[in-house]
Computed example of a mutant assay.
Amino acid sequence: MDEHSGAESGKLAEGAYRSVLGDIIRCVLPGGTVIQERKLAQALGVSRSPMRDALNRLEGEGLLVRLTERLLTVRVITLEDYLHSLDVRALIEPQAASLATPRVMDEELERIDATLRAIEAADAPTREQHWAFDELLHGTLADRSGNPFLAKTIREMRRYTEIFERQTVPARISPGAADHRALVDALRERRPERVKSAMATHIRNVRKRTLAGF
């Protein structure tokens, strides 16, 4: 394989990875679904080789589970998995948010604030609006922490919480909107300790709201 074809194969594998990952997170492929490599490859118009690379990557990240040599299924995220992921987030995400506070660019903060204001102004914001904002806020803070290990772990743990909530938690109007507003206001003031406290409170409230539904 020459350099050009290798780069193209890597691009196809990355695209397949992002597509399947998105379907898992949005519960298009819910927990327990048997993965059909050939069918997924055909749906995306790629060969089985890049799709296999993508599935191997997702298996390595714990989102796919191998039952036999040839049988892969989407991991079922249990309440225990969910609570464990929140525990990890509670340990590291407030610190990451604090580190990110002086590093978030003004234009990023404006986009975050404008997106939240649109949700606050909507009569009936959709869950997709909520999840898009959630990714924007938490993803930006994780990336701007300056620590790639923190960012990677936060993103992985957030996948578990999002999958579980999408599958299990009843739809709510603007879930966590007040928490998010407190976070954004603290960011606007560039106060790391306040941002850290607001993030810790937010994660505690996420846990409380979810357990209250069981």
Rank of each mutant, 00 (worst) to 15 (best):
L67G: 10
L71E: 15
R89Y: 07
T73E: 01
P125V: 13
L99H: 13
T126F: 04
S98P: 03
A90V: 00
D113P: 06
T68M: 05
E120I: 04
A90S: 11
L109R: 14
A118Y: 08
D106M: 10
I119K: 08
L72M: 11
D81Y: 05
I112G: 04
A100P: 02
L86I: 05
E107I: 11
E80S: 11
T78G: 10
R89C: 14
L109I: 11
R103Q: 14
I77M: 07
R70V: 15
A124E: 14
D123S: 15
P102T: 15
L99D: 12
V88M: 04
L79H: 07
V76M: 03
E93H: 01
T73H: 01
V104A: 07
A114R: 07
A122D: 15
E69W: 04
A100Y: 01
P125C: 13
T73G: 00
E80Y: 03
E120C: 07
L83M: 09
A97T: 04
V74D: 01
L72Y: 02
I77C: 05
H84S: 01
A90K: 06
R75E: 08
A118H: 09
I112K: 04
E110L: 10
E69Y: 03
E80T: 10
P94T: 07
Q95I: 11
E108G: 04
D123F: 11
H84N: 05
E93Y: 02
V74C: 09
L67Q: 11
L79C: 14
S85W: 00
T126C: 10
P94F: 07
D81C: 12
A118F: 09
L71K: 13
L99T: 05
E69S: 03
P125M: 10
L86S: 00
A90D: 03
I77V: 15
E93D: 09
V104C: 06
E110C: 07
A100E: 02
E120M: 06
A118C: 07
R111I: 13
A122Q: 09
A122W: 08
R111P: 12
E93P: 01
A121P: 13
D106A: 14
I92A: 10
L71Q: 15
I119V: 09
A122Y: 04
R89K: 09
E107Q: 12
D87G: 08
D113A: 14
A96G: 06
R89E: 12
D87W: 02
D123H: 06
A124T: 10
Q95W: 12
A122N: 11
A90M: 09
L72E: 02
L72I: 00
L79A: 13
I92D: 04
L99P: 01
A96Q: 07
I119F: 12
L99F: 12
L91M: 06
I112C: 03
V74Y: 06
A122K: 11
V88Q: 05
Q95P: 03
T126L: 13
R111A: 05
A90Y: 04
A118W: 08
I92L: 11
I77F: 10
R75T: 10
T115F: 06
A100M: 02
L86V: 01
S98K: 10
D123R: 13
I92E: 06
P125D: 07
E80K: 10
A118P: 03
T101I: 06
I119R: 05
I77W: 01
D106N: 13
E107A: 11
I92T: 06
T101N: 02
D81P: 08
E110P: 00
Y82W: 09
A97M: 07
A124Y: 12
S85C: 04
V76F: 05
D123W: 13
A96R: 08
V104W: 05
A114E: 08
L99A: 10
